Simulated scan of single mutants.
Amino acid sequence: MTFDAVIIGGSFAGLSAALMLARARRDILVIDSGLPRNRFSTHSHGVLGLDGIAGADLLRQAKAQLLAYPTVRWVTDTATAADRTVDGFAVHTAGGETWAARKLLLATGIADGLPELPGVAERWGHSVLHCPYCHGYEVGGGAIGLLGGHALSVKMAGLLADWGQVTLFAHGMQIEDDERAMLERRGVRIEAERVLGLEGDAPQLSGALLADGRRVDLRALFVAARQAMATPLVAQLGCALEDSPIGVLVQVDAQKQTSVPGIYAAGDATVVGNITLANAEGVRAGISLHHALVAEDSAA
């Protein structure tokens, strides 16, 4: 069987795209490895009508609703390679299966490259965070930190001041005079000493240990994880990438098509965002892919 589309990745963008195609009565296959990016967080916030729901619960509900459509098939597996064929694409999986599709939709997400700092990994998604809109309210104010050293550090520190008393750990970065003035106006404290590690009963955080031996009390630490593609499949297919301030993204046009004809992409791999934005990007990609199928069918 040749599916109208194979969607690689069954998290928020993939599910949203699949739902649009299922409602268009198209035969689709979702291949998902079961490792969503937000698996480290216990709850998801800022999702309209579902604020505070556990991300895993939200995905389970969405998957169950999707599988109620008779033209949808779901495979728990990892897509490892894909080839172009006369009729579209052949997708190969770690489980030894090969699936044929007219179109591909990559909702494979990104991998977060965390700072190599003792104590970060075991607190990721709990008290070491990346998005204040997702987690800042729950921190509850008080002493929060931002680990600097990247292009967005100063802007982010000023932003975070709405969520608590912020310490920007420069961590070796240069801060210009006008930036210092802005941070002072926002009540942000600048700490020049490098952070050596984090302390507290993980996954909770109580403070940061500095190179000079001092300790700074903290309720939470925000970091900018370096983004990379979560799968080598994107590069193997030849999809063009573009730089963002915190990593790389798949290059797509307004219809969410990649640089490779017939391959679409959506979600965290294409936009720096959150669940709501991933859902929206998935909807856009699913509808655009359906339009392309209809155009082909009309021309045949």
Rank of each mutant, 00 (worst) to 15 (best):
I7Y: 06
S11H: 08
R23W: 05
A24S: 13
D27M: 08
V30P: 05
L35F: 06
N38R: 08
A54D: 08
L58E: 04
K63A: 09
L67W: 01
A79E: 00
A82Q: 01
D83T: 14
D83Q: 12
T85H: 05
A90E: 14
A90W: 04
W99C: 00
A107S: 13
G109N: 00
A111E: 15
D112S: 08
P118F: 10
R123G: 13
G125Q: 11
C131G: 05
H135W: 04
Y137W: 15
E138H: 09
E138Q: 13
G149Q: 09
A151L: 11
S153V: 12
G158I: 06
A161T: 15
A161G: 13
D162N: 11
Q165V: 09
Q174D: 15
Q174L: 12
D177L: 11
D178A: 14
A181G: 02
E184G: 06
G187F: 07
R189K: 10
E191P: 00
P203A: 09
L210H: 05
L210T: 07
V216I: 15
V216R: 10
A228C: 00
L237F: 11
A240E: 15
A240F: 07
G247D: 07
Q255P: 00
V260Y: 03
G262S: 10
T270G: 05
V272Q: 09
T276K: 02
N279A: 10
V283F: 07
A285K: 11
G286P: 09
G286E: 08
A300V: 12
